[in-house]
Design a protein around this nucleic acid. Structure first.
Lengths: 172, 172
DNA sequence: TTGTTTCCCATGATGACCCATGATATCCCA
DNA sequence: TGGGATATCATGGGTCATCATGGGAAACAA
């Protein structure tokens, strides 16, 4: 049980599965380039990033070459012979785009991906553990507000279970 | 060094990850030529591409000289002594067409292949891992929409593994 | 020959790559 | 604890390779 409390630690456990954490701001410059947050870039290998448009949200899921496997493993809950599963598998293996990151930490997205997330102006990066997501700052803020509201609603449950430190914290 | 980290046997799915990934737009020019996306062409050898019409979709399956093997191995589900299997094997080995790619990256399809996929105007290329498919942009878009609908349909099942946080914002 | 297909060249456009510079954060040492 | 040195980062821009595209010439078939 002691090892399970690694949520509060200021330093991440490198061997832990949670590789991408935190929120970072970003933007698109005049040439359409996007700076990948250094904290995330350091976790990517070979200066390459894999991107997949989220199925039902205006977000781009990003990660390393494990992204495909992560996405596919999410289908584990579906019946192996379900036709939907086959379609989703195709969509994942075919939809993941491999992009390069230059030495200044920037990448440029294909237009189709940018459109999926309606990227424009202020952007946001948000860690999701095995991968991270990219979207407009506005959308991510909205998501965070919803999450906070949900957390508040279930505060008692959460506190009892795993987040004693949340007790005195309230969003302003 | 990375090889030591594969503790989870369940993730072992694809040792050599997809060679053909991502989605690219294309078209047919006035002389009937099609530009093979550079990302795919780089993975083909000897400036040649192998093409085979998909069995039940208006798509052309494309790849390198491994395509025949891939297609044949897809028959693995059929009984080894099934008569249909023998027919299909003949169909595949005899039906795969080998086409050349010129140094500007273009190829021109035999009329029969173009008709199978109803190629006209805007086209789309979609990675499928070991190979990729070619079809009209309209058809591939339709497939993507179907996949997204399926993802929404199974959202609750997928969310447990793929989408932490916020539940569907069924709005007021 | 005449129409059709393949091959190759030319050109403009796009994007990848690299450099420079100023700003910011971090570290070290007095 | 303050200040300087150092490393990292953000940002803009220039250059060059690659690519997209149209079209001509050559090879081929009828």
């Amino acid at each position: 049980m002691n090892a399970a409390t690694d949520n509060q630690a200021s330093q991440e456990v490198q061997a832990s599965p949670a590789r991408f954490t935190g929120r970072y701001a970003g933007k698109i410059d005049a040439k359409g380039r996007i700076v990948v947050p250094p904290e995330f870039r350091q976790r990517l290998q070979n200066n390459e990033i894999f991107v997949f448009p989220h199925f039902d949200e205006p977000l781009l899921q990003c990660g390393d070459d494990q992204l495909v496997n992560d996405l596919l493993s999410a289908l584990g809950g579906l019946d192996e012979f379900d036709e939907d599963r086959a379609i989703l598998e195709e969509e994942i293996t075919g939809g993941v785009m491999r992009l390069g990151i230059d030495d200044t930490g920037r990448t440029s997205l294909p237009k189709s991906l940018g459109e999926h997330a309606a990227l424009e102006g202020a952007l946001g990066f948000a860690g999701r553990g095995q991968h991270f997501v990219l979207g407009t700052a506005a959308y991510l803020d909205q998501r965070r507000d919803i999450a906070r509201a949900a957390a508040t609603k279930h505060r008692e449950t959460l506190r009892a279970r795993m987040l004693p430190s949340v007790r005195s914290r309230r969003s302003s």
